[in-house]
Design a protein around this nucleic acid. Structure first.
Length: 276
DNA sequence: ATGTTTGTTCCGAT
DNA sequence: CATCGGAACAAACA
């Protein structure tokens, strides 16, 4: 589930509590995680977020990168606790006498965990577009990047190469808040719309970080201590039956396979795709 | 049984 | 050759 706010919540908690600890033991359960076993003996210098990735920067200069995808979780635990269902990697960290467990769970196994040298970070930074909350990212740059992809604005927002960190839920809500129809073609976006969209996306992302992320019915997102977020109580249009502003029935479109909620009254900027 | 689901990547079509 | 979109990845739930 995690989008930028959820990954940010986990990352900042982990950075606060695991900085300076050393990986004592690592147990992996599948070949796709094999490289992670090599982080034994590595000391954590810093933990930061790049797009939806959690990057453990180690004193040696090497890195451990975790992507939670749809159902991944990183959970701080007592090192003696039993294995949880779908627990894929078990870490034990220590600092002096203190020992802390860290579990990577992932029901659907779409997530990734990889250990390697600094070049992994360079590769990451290269493959992702700008962070939407970066002060230096301007609406003009946003518009140019959106227009670089000939598709609908909803689709472009989910392209991590155009702007990183937005997922289906926050993209859907940002379009509603900016009053832009999700099927609007990027080629038809105005500078004013791009500016509104960036402002709304930032507002929503910051709110959601303040609420420690969104936990849906399936409880697949929880923070590093197992706690739910509360931003699901503040969704604007995602999952709603009626528009919170005008009470019109919310419509659901399937855009590239993703459920897209929108209000046909409030989001009226859609230019017709054809003259049929 | 069928259709959903927060994300990403690969491959075929254009 | 570049770009776009659908399918696939795996598992649970309604």
């Amino acid at each position: 589930m995690p989008e930028l706010p959820e990954v940010q919540t986990i990352t900042s908690d982990l950075n606060k509590h695991l900085k300076g600890l050393t990986f004592d033991q690592v147990e992996t359960t599948a070949v796709v995680y094999a490289s992670v076993a090599k982080c034994v003996g590595e000391k954590i210098e810093n933990i930061r977020r790049i797009a939806k990735n959690i990057v453990f920067e180690l004193e040696s200069g090497r890195v451990l990168i975790v992507h939670l995808a749809m159902t991944g979780q990183l959970l701080v635990s007592d090192p003696k606790t039993c294995k949880l269902p779908w627990e894929r990697i078990t870490f034990i960290l220590s600092k002096g006498d203190k020992k802390i467990g860290l579990k990577f769970r992932d029901m659907r196994m779409f997530g990734k965990a990889i250990f390697g040298d600094k070049t992994l970070v360079e590769n990451l930074l290269q493959k992702y577009g700008p962070e939407p909350l970066d002060q230096s990212f301007t609406p003009q740059q946003f518009l140019t990047r959106l227009k670089s992809k000939k598709t609908t604005v909803k689709n472009a927002l989910l392209d991590q190469k155009i702007v990183s960190g937005l997922g289906n839920i926050y993209a859907t809500d940002a379009l509603f808040m900016a009053k832009i129809h999700p099927l609007t073609l990027t080629t038809n976006l105005s500078p004013a719309q791009a500016e509104a969209l960036l402002t709304c996306a930032k507002t929503i992302l910051l709110e959601a970080i303040g609420h420690r992320g969104s936990t849906l019915e399936d409880k697949m997102y929880i923070d590093a201590y197992g706690k739910q977020g509360s931003h699901q109580n503040f969704f604007r249009i995602y999952g709603k039956k009626n528009c919170p502003k005008c009470n019109t029935n919310v419509e659901i479109l399937k855009i590239n396979g993703r459920g897209t909620y929108f209000c046909p009254t409030c989001q009226h900027e859609h230019k017709q795709l054809s003259f049929n």
